[in-house]
Design a protein around this nucleic acid. Structure first.
Lengths: 156, 156
DNA sequence: GTCAGTGCAAAAGTTTTGCATACAG
DNA sequence: CTGTATGCAAAACTTTTGCACTGAC
């Protein structure tokens, strides 16, 4: 039951270690904890939120906010994690181990629904091509109100 | 030659005044200058960059950064301008007078190309519908390398 | 005249950096 | 051992707020 998840995390971890080694960086407990926590929460978190979760989960390990920022930057630079900029402010991180997906965000409860659509991806490539643009990535976020919140707020 | 632009700006301005009046807010020189500057630069600017341009352009008018922030927030709340969150950090604003468009951003020179695609928009609506989501807006940014930069950097 | 808006400076956040110490390789 | 990483605190930024004064309506 838990086997598959562990294998997935293990390969993620191995990949991360590999990247660190290749860049002459060191593998530390803090970095492992940050990666593990990002993996376990499996969502989108600001550096600060992540920091608080880690402090809660590993009270003995005295992680500093600076380390969280530094590690997230390493993770992002090495494409292990990606950051998203949401609406008003702040940057949120998520692991980039999932194939590829975009986000649909509820304006009211901030729930994030992930989705993937081949048709749009294809069209994006074509648009880029038409303009002589070499595509390397994209960000697509749909904003709206999720079904749950639509029920809650009758009018407005 | 300049006629059309003026008409466009005038209607933008009239609309803004209208919104202000409807909300019991006041129309001030500062607000006009900020709107006019946003219009004239016709691009995407951070509050800080906008502030510097205004200081340069209107040295006599002693605008404060706080007013720029306050006005941008008013503009955004009233849908006259929209803000985009780009890559690493900061929020950029642009006027929302253009019909609708998305952005293609060059990772090297940061040029922003605007585009619009009905096919994608339609697909987005359908995706939202499939998931019981009531769509109110979206953000789509394609990242890559523009044709100019592709020529400049041969390899890499 | 009234009340919202403004500039300034201080405050509140958020992210980065400098430094002495700790620890991975 | 060597040199990178860490925690802490300070610094650097970005954005918001409080306040006395100005100016739009």
């Amino acid at each position: 039951m838990k086997k598959l998840e562990n294998i997935e995390y293990d390969s993620l971890l191995a990949n991360f270690k590999d990247i660190l080694k290749k860049n002459g960086l060191k593998f530390t407990i803090q970095r492992e904890v940050i990666l593990r926590t990002l993996y376990s929460i499996n969502g989108h978190f600001t550096p600060d939120a992540l920091y608080l979760i880690i402090k809660e989960k590993y009270p003995d390990l005295n992680v500093g906010i600076a380390t969280v920022y530094r590690t997230l930057n390493v993770l992002e630079e090495s494409d292990v994690a990606t950051s998203l900029s949401f609406g008003s402010q702040g940057k949120k991180f998520e692991l980039g181990n999932k194939p590829h997906h975009d986000h649909m965000i509820c304006k009211i409860c901030n729930t994030i629904i992930e989705f993937e659509d081949k048709a749009i991806e294809k069209r994006q490539e074509q648009i880029a091509k038409e303009r002589g643009f070499k595509l390397t990535g994209h960000l697509m976020q749909l904003y709206g109100i999720c079904s749950k919140c639509q029920k809650t707020e009758t009018g407005e």
